[in-house]
Amino acid sequence: MTRSLVITDCDEVLMHMVVPFAQWVDEEHGVIFRMEDTSFAGALKRKECGTPLEAAEVWPLLDGFFRTEMPRQYPIPGALSAMAEIARHADIVVLTNVGPDHQAARMAQLAALGLDAPVIGSRGGKGEPVRALIEERRPPVAVFIDDLANHHHSVAIEAPDVWRLHMVGEPAIADKIPAARHAHARIDDWAAAQDWILARLAEKAPAPAPEAV
Rank of each mutant, 00 (worst) to 15 (best):
V130A: 04
V130T: 12
R131V: 09
R131N: 05
A132D: 14
A132S: 15
A132G: 11
L133R: 04
L133M: 07
I134P: 02
E135N: 14
E135F: 04
R137M: 06
R138F: 06
R138H: 15
P139T: 10
P140V: 08
P140Q: 07
V141Y: 05
V141S: 13
A142T: 08
A142M: 09
V143C: 01
V143L: 06
F144E: 00
F144K: 10
F144N: 00
I145K: 02
D146L: 05
D147Y: 12
L148H: 12
A149K: 00
N150S: 14
N150F: 15
N150I: 14
H151N: 15
H151T: 09
H151Y: 14
H151M: 06
H151E: 11
H152A: 02
S154H: 06
S154D: 09
V155Q: 11
V155G: 03
V155I: 07
A156S: 12
A156D: 01
I157C: 14
I157W: 02
I157P: 07
E158R: 05
A159Q: 09
A159C: 13
D161T: 14
V162D: 03
V162C: 06
W163Q: 08
H166A: 04
M167Y: 04
M167W: 06
V168S: 07
G169N: 09
G169H: 04
E170L: 06
P171L: 03
P171K: 12
P171R: 11
I173R: 13
I173W: 08
A174N: 03
A174Y: 02
P178H: 03
P178K: 04
P178I: 13
A179N: 05
A180L: 01
A183F: 01
H184S: 05
A185Y: 01
A185V: 15
R186M: 02
R186P: 11
D188S: 03
D188P: 05
D189I: 09
D189E: 15
W190D: 09
W190K: 01
W190T: 10
W190I: 12
A191S: 12
A192H: 12
A192K: 15
A193F: 10
Q194T: 14
D195C: 08
I197H: 10
I197L: 03
R200K: 15
R200Y: 01
L201R: 00
L201Y: 02
E203C: 10
K204M: 11
K204F: 03
A205L: 15
